[in-house]
Design a protein around this nucleic acid. Sequence first.
RNA 1: GGAGAGAUGGCAGAGUGGUCGAAUGCGCCGGUUUGCUAAAUCGGUGUACCUGUUAAAUCGGGUACCGAGGGUUCGAAUCCCUCUCUCUCCGCCA
Length: 424
Amino acid sequence: MLDIRFIRENADLVREAIRRKRIAVDLDNVLAADGECRELKTSFESRKAEQNRGSKELGRLDAAARAKALEGLKVLSDEVRVLEARLVEAEARLRTLLLLVPNVLDPAVPEGRDDSQNAELKRWGTPRQFDFAAKDHVDLGTSLDILDIERATRIAGSRTYFLKNEGALLELAVLRFAIDHMMAKGFSPMLVPHLVRTEAMEGTAYLPGGEEQAYRTQKDDSWLIGTSEVPVTAYRMGEILSCEELPLKMAGLSPCYRREAGTYGKDTRGLYRIHQFQKVEQVVVCRADLDESIRWHDAILKNAEELLQAFELPYRVVDVCDGDLGRPQVRKFDIETWMPSRNGYGETHSASRFHDYQARRLDLRYRDEQGKVRICHTLNNTVVASPRILIPLLENHQQADGSVVIPEVLRPYMGGRSVMKPKA
RNA sequence: GGAGAGAUGGCAGAGUGGUCGAAUGCGCCGGUUUGCUAAAUCGGUGUACCUGUUAAAUCGGGUACCGAGGGUUCGAAUCCCUCUCUCUCCGCCA
């Protein structure tokens, strides 16, 4: 959420963001609602002040004077009540509108219609040329007896899977490596609530707007998280942090649940797009300093790159274009990892910088050295998401005999295994 | 799931209809005292929003906030209702 004062003073910037992110919001409605709010607030407060003065005096009056003053106060009280009701309504209307106003863009964000027009920033590694008929991860996983999609579909519906044997171990290995990698960077590992309240979803800007993508419980009105970003970023919501404890560096591990509504027929084969996966997510909460925020954005991008390099997987980094950028992000870098079966790069990581957009919604603040209360900045990036990462891991490291070599850094987490071999 | 108790400022803890944004203590900040430290002593010490003066305010005026939301009342921390959370006991359970 943007500061309404910022919107008033930078309406052009905000209009540009609405246009470039292709979001259906009429800023004039927002500004009108704001004007109405302030008008009502002024008249309500001055009448209320009058009433407070009168009521205060009433206590000191004798019976006769009191009865007389009471009459006038009753009228005033009704008037105040009406004004207040109108004010509350106007404020609710403004907030509803404000939640939908997108964050402004970093000047560097490239222009583009969709993800096909993201700007490539760098490439690392060279996609492998196979001198044999390479299999995709589904065939590999099946013959290695580490993956079963067919039976999962019977039991749990589309976009589900079983990982078993070394497949199960490989996912655990990848996650644990990611946690250790982040701990070495000073991030606190966190296991988090998977069911959260609307507040946390709204605070991280998944709501309103993301209702169709999230699973919601029927009886208790809570939401299954689509990423641990939600509980981790919201972890200190409503608090005023001391500046000594910033930045908060946290690495959340959780399952992630996504309905994938509206994606029928898209990425239907294999483990690319599924309803449930596990992810280690890095979250940074830092002071309200643009340069610092940008530095962290680069740092969390680098953390993820290091992981892919350790896994010996070719990847590229893209600067996400305006048309593909979400409402809350100022700028976003995606990492796409080489996936032979797609004969291309597929998104595996997403590093977002939010400025104070999430923090304002979460009421996440800190006291600076001067004692001034300020709104934090937040950022996040994937460390690793599995099983999607298993796609490049299996496909890139396969051998002619159908076996798959386990990257060296993962072997300690796999009981020393260096290769997975077909069972049949 | 059933029965009961509770939620007050950074912390502890008073306050059961007006003079309460809230006693008192601790903590914290500043002054005085002090060879230093400690002690003593004096003063200060929430957040948000509206509005005024202004070059700008750490300035003036106002409104709101005593878990959250609603109600009663001229007036609510205090009375009533709903919800959330915490604790105790019973049941169930990993």
